[in-house]
Design a protein around this nucleic acid. Structure first.
Lengths: 153, 153
DNA sequence: ACCCAGTTGCTTGACATCATGAAATATCCA
DNA sequence: TGGATATTTCATGATGTCAAGCAACTGGGT
């Protein structure tokens, strides 16, 4: 993992200062809210969070099961069940990969695409809190988040 | 919510501008990374994410099961199982509430407190992509997140 | 005071989903 | 042919919901 964590002299004596701790706590709050609203939005469409994530990914592009597992960061055997349930509802279908008969491509159906689109609209939540920020603020926030994430990507 | 799906001019007319969409996407990335690191840090202590969250809450203060469920935003019957598993490991104990014999207070044991402390250090350390931001940047980020979250709290 | 009904807090049970890991199967590739 | 890869199946466990149950608190009415 990130053993590239800088020239830190002592790995754990590194107690964060109050400001950093507050930012961490705030990010934690954001994460909690995001997850909560994501699950609720999915539930409004009778989907679980995992199913909604898969549907969202497949709406962009069909994917082999293995890649789907990679995107979700879980075992391929887990994806089998999630796609099974989406397929049982007619939102997703499995298609053969013409180039490799071992591979099955998961792809959204028309109904699945429509559901994914409605779901995305429902995810307005992230937009609302942002409404209180001016354009300049949003730009600042974007740059800070970019740098934060870019540090280890 | 948006049941205003009438014969609207265009269903996606309330499409957010590109800047807002990018910020939303970045927040999504932060959420994904945060969760991943949280789960990994918990796993390093042979805990699940839910168990780690409960342990972290109880390390601050003993709580009735009901309040714990409220904090986790799940059903009380679910908390029973999570606390059961923590109790089986000696990290948490159930104590009677002197004021109301129906209530059971979940409280960390000494060992639980120690585990919670180690866990928190691991999390602080893991979330240190913030280190790439200057003090001024962090202050700015803090203020932006505060305003974003404060809007609906 | 008493008792009874309703409410509240927690647990239990049945069930669905998500997640892992090991083993089986089919296919690819060197 | 033999080893690697993609998917599935099975067993298992954690998390989550809901309904039902028990214990304890609370508020009337007598």
């Amino acid at each position: 993992m990130s053993s590239s964590a800088g020239p830190g002299p002592s790995p754990r004596s590194r107690r964060a200062d109050p400001l950093t701790r507050e930012v961490i706590a705030l990010i934690g709050d954001v994460v909690v809210r995001y997850h909560q609203e994501y699950e609720e939005a999915a539930a409004r469409h009778s989907l679980t969070g995992a199913q909604a994530r898969v549907l969202g990914l497949l709406a962009l592009d069909p994917l082999p099961m293995r890649r789907l597992a990679g995107a979700l960061r879980c075992e391929p055997s887990n994806v089998t069940g999630i796609v099974d349930r989406l397929e049982a509802r007619g939102l997703v279908e499995r298609r053969p990969d013409p180039g490799d008969r071992r591979v099955k491509l998961a792809a959204v159906t028309d109904e699945g695409r429509a559901t994914a689109a409605r779901l995305r609209e429902a995810l307005d939540f992230a937009r609302e809190p942002l409404a209180t920020l001016s354009d300049a603020d949003r730009t600042t926030l974007r740059d800070l988040l970019r740098r934060m994430l870019g540090a280890e990507l």
